[in-house]
Simulated assay, not measured.
Amino acid sequence: MKKYFVFHTTSLVFKSEKIIKKCGIDYEIVPTPKLDGHVYCGVCICVDKGNIEGVEEALIENYIEYKIA
């Protein structure tokens, strides 16, 4: 099962991508799914469900805000 890390800006997506890549976690950049009627940037980061904790830790350490879908 895949989970999506959604950000408010594209620049945060690419900043997060660099952080996730350094951690050696597999990911994909994909179009953002619709979430609760809110508008987010056009792309997000998709990871396997088993990698959620690692990604969350890395983003929190770097003070990056996100939502999980």
Rank of each mutant, 00 (worst) to 15 (best):
L35N: 00
D26C: 05
E28K: 12
I52D: 02
E53P: 00
Y40K: 09
L35K: 05
I45F: 03
C23L: 12
C23N: 14
E28G: 11
V47Y: 05
K22P: 05
K49R: 15
P31L: 11
Y27G: 07
C46V: 06
K49P: 00
K22F: 04
C23I: 05
G50H: 09
D26Y: 10
C44V: 10
H38C: 12
V43A: 01
C44E: 03
I25Y: 03
G50R: 13
E28S: 15
K21P: 03
G42A: 15
P31N: 04
T32W: 03
V43S: 11
C23A: 04
I52L: 00
K21F: 12
E28N: 14
I19D: 01
I45A: 08
K21E: 01
L35H: 09
C23S: 09
K22L: 07
V47L: 07
K34V: 02
D36F: 02
V43E: 12
P33N: 03
I19K: 00
C44Q: 09
V47T: 06
I25T: 03
V30P: 02
V43Y: 12
E53Y: 11
T32G: 13
C44T: 14
K34E: 10
K34M: 06
V47E: 08
G37K: 07
V47N: 07
G50P: 07
E53G: 11
P31A: 00
C46F: 00
E53S: 14
I25A: 00
C41W: 05
I29F: 00
G37Y: 03
V30Q: 01
V30A: 09
P31Q: 13
